[in-house]
Design a protein around this nucleic acid. Structure first.
Lengths: 130, 130
DNA sequence: TATTGTTATACTCTATAACTATA
DNA sequence: TATAGTTATAGAGTATAACAATA
């Protein structure tokens, strides 16, 4: 939990480097390149009401990072995909967010590997099962 | 990072169980019982502007969870402390937030211990050095 | 009837700038 | 002059409720 709150305090700082809000960062993270996602599924993944996604996507769309496309199967639904600019920014943001804390050197290379392995196992399939 | 965003999505859910906002949860976490903290230091710990702390504390104070007290050393400054109700709610919230993800059983008891140990080392002194 | 996304409304969070009372 | 906290203001995030189009 301490880990969580520590990173939570960092997010606005990281996000603002790219003039993004924390929530916008989260959206960028959730829309994977070449993997269009319906708006409703995005709302689920964000654990927020669907009505919020409208405005969130509006702002990202007006910055040319995300596109709304009609869904092939259901004419009520729209799917979201990253624009080329969105793909680029996403990868830059992710790179910055994965910059490890300066305290990482406290763990040996072996320990770091073991840590990553355990965290991976904890998180598998917890978000956006294909 | 995936870990972070996963927990980030959980926070509003956990918080709303107690009719708290995510930020209010964070504040409750940061004010330790019997450890008054000046408002300015709270703003630092939250990585937000000092002006936000006013409203944040207003709302917590009007719910009887937090108290403002004049600082002994500097008459400009006010220190924050939890009320008895605040101490109680803090401990309940923290208990809920430390409920491990259901996927924890994927790690053996030994692995869990090792994981906790490593995370502790990564985080030591990163927040609120005494 | 039920569902997807939108709109309207209200409240909270957040930053910036201007203010006050101390230092 | 500088600092701690407040107030005013504006934009973004969030939930609820009501709505249109489609299923």
């Amino acid at each position: 939990m301490k880990f969580f709150f520590t990173r939570r305090a960092d997010l606005p700082t990281v996000a603002s480097k790219f003039e993004l809000s924390p929530a916008q960062c989260h959206v960028l993270h959730l829309i994977e390149p070449d993997r269009p996602i319906p708006m409703g599924r995005l709302a689920e993944a964000l654990a927020c009401d669907a009505s919020n996604v409208t405005g969130l996507v509006d702002r990202l769309e007006s910055r040319g990072l995300v596109r709304r496309q009609p869904s092939a199967e259901d004419r009520r639904s729209k799917v979201l995909e990253l624009t080329p600019a969105g793909v680029r920014l996403r990868s830059i943001v992710l790179e910055h967010m994965t910059t490890p804390p300066e305290t990482l050197h406290r763990l040996s290379a072996d320990e770091q590997r073991a840590l990553v392995k355990m965290l991976r196992r904890l998180l598998e399939r917890e978000v956006s099962p294909p």
